[in-house]
């Protein structure tokens, strides 16, 4: 690990000002310290925000929930209100990492975790995310875990979070404070970036920005499912994951909110695909048509070609469960 100067923030202003001056924020540190050991990241200054409070889960006036940025993943997953009214979020959190990591990893930090692309982690390899302009070895290399949607010439990395996929399906908002002390809230849909020509930028945070909370809207009800497909049964990143919130009216789908992990540089959602489902009667034909829309621009890079049929199958399995219809004979 490269040497760094360590300071502890006692106010959010300490953190945002240090961020403006080039310091890197550390919260749980489970991803950042790993990357610092490998020198994938080498901050000269760390500002520790763990003593800022920001660790409460509070009911907001509109029936929603305000989750402090420092709430550990394990506490959020175990919160009685989340388990009852936003179960897709508990399920996504419990599908990620290990008990030890969930105790340390925070809500804000989980949103900011970096890709697990092998080439991003290997400092002997070019990587446009780690070192802009150096190239991408993943496109023609080992890309089993890589993206099939929203990729660019520069980058085919995926975002690794499970939590963020559930938050995308739930239409969560990210609350951010800047060095001027101003707070803004942005929909999670606008928080992440696609790689385009700037894959080194994962999200819309600017230097000096501090995530202070994540807010959930009032419970959507319906069937809530998080299904994660991975190489082993536990403690592995998603190859494909689906967060689904589906409500029915009689025998028709009244609303469908579907977000996908493992497919893109951000939790993926497709309004056009959801429009195919809403108002329709659930059937495997319908689910196939939805998958056709979702995957019309999907592109494999060799090792990850399997993700295209796997996404279709996972989506169909989740929709069958959510709509309570059986597999056709």
């Amino acid at each position: 690990m490269r040497p760094f100067e360590y300071t502890r923030a006692t106010t959010t202003r300490d953190a945002t000002r240090a961020g403006t001056d080039g310091a890197t924020i550390i919260a749980g540190g489970t991803n950042l310290l790993d990357l610092m050991k490998l020198e994938v990241m080498a901050p000269e200054r760390l500002i520790d925000i763990n003593r800022l409070g920001l660790n409460a889960i509070e009911e907001s006036g509109d029936g929603g929930l305000r989750i402090g940025a420092l709430v550990p993943n394990s506490d959020l997953a175990a919160d009685r209100r989340v388990r009852k009214d936003w179960p897709v979020l508990s399920r996504a959190l419990l599908a990620g990492a290990s008990g030890q990591l969930r105790n340390k990893a925070t809500t804000g930090g989980n949103l900011c975790q970096r890709t697990r692309c092998y080439y991003f982690y290997d400092t002997d390899m070019p990587c446009n995310k780690r070192e802009p302009g150096s190239g991408c070895q993943a496109r023609g290399g080992f890309n089993r875990i890589h993206a099939i949607l929203g990729t660019s010439e520069q980058c085919i990395a995926t975002h690794p979070s499970d939590m963020a996929v559930a938050l995308r399906a739930l239409d969560a908002m990210v609350e951010i404070e800047n060095a001027e002390g101003e707070r803004r809230s942005i929909p999670i849909a606008e928080f992440y970036r696609l790689p385009h020509g700037t894959p080194h930028l994962d999200n819309e945070l600017h230097p000096g920005d501090l995530i202070t909370a994540v807010t959930l809207p009032a419970p959507a009800g319906g069937a809530q499912i998080y299904r994660k497909v991975r190489d082993r049964a536990s403690y592995a990143f998603a190859l494909v994951s689906v967060a689904a919130i589906v409500t029915m009216e009689g025998d028709r789908i009244a609303s469908a909110s579907l977000a996908f992990g493992g497919l893109a540089h951000m939790p993926w959602r497709d309004d056009e695909m959801e429009a195919v489902l809403v108002g329709a009667t659930p059937s495997d034909d319908l689910f196939d048509r939805a998958a056709d829309v979702l995957l019309k621009d999907a592109q494999g890079y060799g090792h990850n070609d399997f993700k295209i049929p796997l996404t279709r199958r996972t989506l169909k399995a989740v929709l069958r469960d959510a709509c309570n219809v059986g597999e056709p004979a």
């Binding site: 360590y6 550390i26 540190g29 489970t30 790993d34 763990n50 030890q100 105790n103 340390k104």
Partner: peptide, 24 residues
């Protein structure tokens, strides 16, 4: 943080002691 051999309890909770700084 992948193997768990370093697991200790901090304020009663299990964590990976290899993935946190002593000064924190």
């Amino acid at each position: 943080g992948q193997c768990g051999a370093c697991t200790v309890l901090i304020n009663g909770r299990r964590i990976n002691s290899c993935l946190t700084l002593a000064c924190m």
